[in-house]
Write a protein that binds this DNA or RNA. Structure first.
Length: 300
DNA sequence: TGCACGGGGATGAATAATTT
DNA sequence: AAATTATTCATCCCCGTGCA
């Protein structure tokens, strides 16, 4: 157990041992000579030894001071070496960033990944599967650097920091062979009288559409539940199901699969795609560098 | 959460003692 | 005579503690 000693006194000891002068030590530590002498007095009291004896105008260490110097001085050096601030992130060094994504957010990230590849060839982006909505532990211990997910409401997680990327609305897609395909707009009755495909990335039994319907005590019939956004539209071909999905992807896939896109006949909050990181790592130069590039990218 | 309190450290001035 | 260390005194500030 350490004796109750002020670390500043050990700094003084270390300096005095090397300079053998109270005045020089005072200069080194930015203290007045008086304060330095006071401090030496306190250290003498704490350690019960004279420590330094003035001989021929020089502060000569006592035998006890010589003994403790062997541990104290290397320890102080180790401390000051260990207390160095963060080294800034070097983007020309080979570095891997691990980002957890859903299939859909991985699709969204495509331009960002290309941006990084073009500007920072040494950076390796590893996208891995987002196993839970907010993988707090993995973000904290470094298995993940970021998670890219989407949500409809403000997060309440205390330990997670989030960066907004973009916001987008939902559309309802149907096959162009569907009986409703000729209509300009969907009514709520249309919506409720047909079967649906639910996208549940985390094996939920309800989606945002179901919770919005529940607010007016209504429900829809879910015929198929799928874990991924990207494959879901393929299930609309040759079927009479409805699929409510992110507009950004829907408009791209609609032409390829001959789909018709309509506005859902109820209020569905927009989803927001966000980048998540753990608060304990928010000052990690690696992560702050990435966030800076990320912010530059999204303002393009 | 805000507050007063006290301990302890730092400061500057003044001074004594010692060395060079 | 100049430089250096040690000491005393008054004062300021910070921080931990206990209390409301």
């Amino acid at each position: 157990m350490l004796p109750n000693i002020d670390l500043n006194l050990l700094k003084l000891f270390s300096s005095l041992y090397q300079t053998a002068s109270v005045s020089k030590t005072a200069q080194e530590l930015n203290l007045s000579q008086s304060a330095c002498s006071h401090a030496l007095t306190r250290l003498r009291q704490r350690l019960g030894d004279e420590l330094f004896i003035r001989i021929d105008n020089e502060m000569v260490p006592s035998i006890f001071a010589q003994q403790i110097a062997q541990s104290v001085i290397p320890a102080m050096q180790q401390l000051s070496a260990g207390l160095k601030p963060f080294e800034p992130f070097n983007s020309s060094k080979t570095t891997r960033f691990t980002i957890a994504t859903t299939d859909y957010t991985a699709w969204c990230l495509k331009p960002l990944v290309h941006y990084f590849n073009a500007h920072y060839p040494q950076i390796n982006l590893q996208l891995v599967s987002l196993e839970q909505r907010t993988p707090t532990e993995a973000l904290q211990d470094g298995r993940l650097d970021f998670a890219c997910g989407f949500t409809h409401h403000q997060e309440k997680n205390e330990s997670i920091l989030e960066h907004d990327w973009f916001e987008d609305k939902y559309v309802t897609a149907i096959s162009n062979q569907h009986p409703l395909a000729k209509q300009k707009a969907l009514t709520l009755d249309d919506f409720l009288s047909h079967t649906h495909i639910l996208i549940a990335p985390w094996n939920e039994t309800k989606g945002v559409v179901d919770s919005m319907l529940a607010k007016t005590k209504k429900s829809r019939k879910v015929a198929i539940t799928l874990p991924h956004v990207l494959i879901a539209p393929y299930y609309l071909q040759h079927s009479n199901h409805l699929l409510t999905l992110p507009q950004a992807y829907a408009v791209q896939i609609a032409e390829l699969l001959d789909l018709v896109l309509l506005d859902p006949p109820l209020n569905i909050p927009n989803y927001r795609v966000k980048l998540y990181l753990h608060k304990t790592r928010q000052n990690d130069p690696k992560l702050t560098w990435f966030v800076k590039q990320f912010n530059q990218f999204i303002t393009l």
